[in-house]
Design a protein around this nucleic acid. Structure first.
Lengths: 255, 255
DNA sequence: CCATCTTTGTGCACGCGTTCACAAAGACAT
DNA sequence: ATGTCTTTGTGAACGCGTGCACAAAGATGG
């Protein structure tokens, strides 16, 4: 039921590696800061430091875009800002819909970085009829029934899902059916989409768990790895047995 | 990722690859759902489908944890839930502080997935004196002056930064100085931290830009790749010279 | 016009991650 | 017991991403 044929056949588009694409926004941000300070040129070393990456990596990344640097001098800041913006498709306007206007959805709607970079919040959508008409971030919330019409009328191709996990797949299906081909998913669920639709997920819970893993490892190293088993003993559960010994796992969509 | 000399000496801890660690929370979530439905065992194929990954990858991932499966049958759900939880360090309690209680910070504080899996919001911190005492998600906001004391008293090792970009590095430095060794950064900035401190970043803007890239590419393919240059002409800026002849560069985005 | 010095662009090697494909292991039926 | 059938665990090959190290390019000064 979940992913199924989520192929992702090496999204290497026009020869630009996916890893490079993921770093371009980082470079762009650093370059924009330099541009605001009217810095005319930067070396790969300086820019790499500002973006927090290796300078060789940065140069190789730029080489995929073409040769925009001048040897002995560096890169022209304004020119590079333009080239990267164009490569990322930020020279055009991207109408975006946010579905699920709870705490998170409202926060996203209010997020400044949204509107500032070619992205425009075309509509806020929520399933709660009581919210319809209520303005959030200056935009009136519309009912989910309008979803297809909104997407169609505005030519929306990017959708943001900030609904509860239980509603995410259904919302996703409707968005895709209406014409959306890129989805940013904040709900803690694996979304299943047809080929040709891109999904990126932002998952707070997963990030925290990864941090906890490393944190535990650090603590374990300090403790000379002497801890035999700090918590409850593994107790291989009998097949078909009940829940865990402590019976926790606090119900509904923990994370 | 941080900046400067953040070596990341192959964070391969006890032989568990980083990529595997990043997937464990995904497996755990799928397994928890199965556990709630009282499913006793799953095959790698089923679980992989639920988690949206390749079954061979899943089996290899589990092999790093040890051999918890039974050939011909599959994996014991309860047992695996426990093993992964333990590996991720979720059998212990992780006090977390959230710094920056704006729209996003408040949304995070209200996020259910936070408290449910071993993570406990120990404190909410904001620099605005007017917010001090105001309860958010049932927890009174404390002033930033208390940061060091809060971290110290509660033994906090994980910090969440949801401040504006300008304040993030400073907050980060204070958290680290106070003893925090893992940081989840929502601010659109590259954080610089000393060795031994882990930083993970969640950046809405970057995710959208990556989606825009692929979206543009899809549109370009549909148009038979005939588009020569859809927007303003590149107009290579003269090296060392001033800006473009017409001084355009439409300020394609402030921040 | 030549020498020097800076910085880019990239060939190459290495390591990680993914995937295939299959032998080993065990459940289950007879 | 023995055979069959399912599913795991993993050896091996492959491809991507990273970083080193250096030659080529061009600016700059004499």
């Amino acid at each position: 039921m979940a992913t199924g044929r989520n192929h992702r056949p090496a999204t290497r588009s026009r020869g630009i590696p996916e890893a490079t694409v993921a770093r371009l926004p980082l470079y762009l941000r650093a370059l924009t800061a330099l541009s605001e300070r009217s810095v005319p040129t930067v070396s790969s070393e300086e820019l790499a430091a500002a973006a927090g990456v290796n300078s060789a990596k940065l140069r190789k990344d730029f080489s995929y875009l073409g040769s925009y640097g001048t040897r002995g001098v560096g890169y022209d800041v304004e020119y590079l800002v333009y080239q990267i913006s164009r490569e990322l498709g930020l020279t055009q306007d991207w109408p975006v819909v946010i579905v699920g206007i709870g705490n998170l959805g409202a926060a996203l709607a209010n997020y400044g970085g949204f509107a500032s970079r070619g992205f425009r919040v075309a509509a806020l959508i929520d399933a709660d009829p009581a919210m319809a008409g209520t303005p959030v971030a200056g935009i009136p919330v519309q009912h989910a029934d309008e979803l297809e019409k909104i997407v169609g009328d505005n030519g929306v191709s990017i959708g943001v899902i900030s609904t509860p996990a239980g509603a995410a797949q259904q919302v996703c299906d409707r968005l895709v059916a209406a014409g959306v081909t890129s989805i940013l998913n904040f709900a803690p669920t694996v979304l299943s989409v047809p080929d040709g639709v891109d999904v990126r997920k932002v998952d707070l819970s997963i990030e925290l768990q990864i941090l906890a893993f490393h944190e535990q490892r650090k603590a374990g190293e300090d403790a000379t790895e002497s801890s035999p088993d700090q918590a409850a003993p593994p107790v291989r559960a009998a097949v078909g047995g009940r829940k865990g010994p402590d019976g926790d796992m606090p119900a509904v969509m923990p994370a």
